[in-house]
């Protein structure tokens, strides 16, 4: 029982995601589909950030750069070479990973605050570059005409198609995040998080492990970006490389529980629901940023471990059952 539980837990988690994802399909609700699309996209972003931040201890502030690059790569391929969306998305994931790999080798030598600052700098540099890069449409960006969606059965079907894609990527991301945590690779990452020098004395090659973690954590946001902007039909530098969204991703990880598998999922769902509630509620809509800030401050000051982490600390039994 004890040995097989983690696997069962993974299946259970995936099953819950699938069950929820099926609801809009069954009741054919476009608005629910859009809500879940956004939530799942944030789950992907938060879980990916968790791989480099929660497992490895490197706070990637500018992680959104991979989301934006993924979106741009895929958009570019679809628009100019009529590459099929699935292929374009996968290519963009690989492209973002290669970028992360090359970038990670020098940047991951930096520690702590220096790394965090560098990732902000990278996101801003890439954003300004894309803004001036004519093949990507410069400051105006790129947009589809509706004929592009014909290959996917028209615009309406394309929206559903994008939804299935984001569900699939979310499932893969959660599974990957789980498998990494439970693997030798993940153990190495967590050793680096706790004390990089000691990890090295114990036989772990920190550079190799960190770069690999960074590469993995770049792949899934790129896919999410490809899907998001495919659905959107338009891509511009501002929304693609929005630093604020990146930091929201960190907030979700903190909210749910740093370094746990379910934490980023819980964090993304809670954060997104809360924001939706605040924005739609007439009493709070104008204050939603303020309330988000206040909430974050309370978590950071008083519940440092996040929801899942807090539960694991409070109820020792859960340490075995809640990953």
């Amino acid at each position: 029982m004890k040995r097989t539980w983690p696997q069962s837990f993974l299946w259970l988690t995936l099953l819950i995601i699938v069950a929820i994802a099926l609801i809009p399909i069954l009741i054919d609700s476009a608005s629910l589909r859009e809500d879940l699309f956004l939530t799942l996209m944030l789950v992907i972003l938060a879980s990916s950030i968790n791989i480099i931040m929660g497992y490895t201890g490197y706070v990637s502030f500018g992680h959104i750069v991979f989301f934006g690059l993924g979106g741009y790569f895929a958009f570019f391929l679809m628009l100019n070479y009529q590459v099929h969306f699935v292929l374009a998305a996968l290519a963009s994931g690989v492209g973002a990973s290669v970028f992360a790999f090359l970038l990670g080798i020098p940047v991951l030598r930096l520690r702590g605050a220096y790394f965090a600052l560098a990732t902000i700098g990278i996101n801003e540099a890439v954003r300004s570059f894309v803004t001036n890069f004519e093949p990507f449409g410069g400051a105006v960006g790129m947009f589809f005409n509706y004929a592009v969606y014909d290959a996917y059965g028209g615009a309406r079907n394309a929206l559903w198609f994008a939804y299935y894609a984001i569900v699939a990527v979310a499932l893969v991301t959660v599974a990957a995040s789980f498998l990494i945590k439970k693997s030798k690779f993940g153990l190495g990452l967590m050793a680096i998080r706790e004390d990089q020098d000691t990890a090295q004395v114990l036989g772990i090659d920190p550079t190799r492990y960190k770069v690999l973690a960074y590469t993995c954590s770049a792949f899934f946001p790129a896919l999410a970006g490809a899907i998001f902007f495919f659905k959107n039909g338009i891509i511009e530098p501002g929304p693609a490389f929005a630093l604020l969204r990146s930091i929201e991703g960190l907030v979700m990880v903190m909210l749910g529980g740093y370094g746990t598998v379910t934490g980023p999922i819980v964090g993304a769902v809670v954060y997104e629901r809360l924001r939706a509630f605040l924005i739609t509620n007439p009493n709070f809509s104008s204050l939603h940023l303020f309330i988000a800030g206040l909430l974050l401050l309370v978590i950071v000051l008083f519940v440092t471990a996040g929801v899942v982490g807090w539960l694991r600390q409070r109820v020792p039994l859960l340490r075995r059952y809640l990953e």
Binding site: V59, A113, A116, L250, M254, L289, A292, L296, L301
Partner: peptide, 15 residues
């Protein structure tokens, strides 16, 4: 750790 103070000051930013 740094992350905590980064997020704490960021929460002030949001507010």
């Amino acid at each position: 750790p740094e992350l905590t103070t980064l997020l704490a000051t960021f929460s002030v930013n949001l507010m």
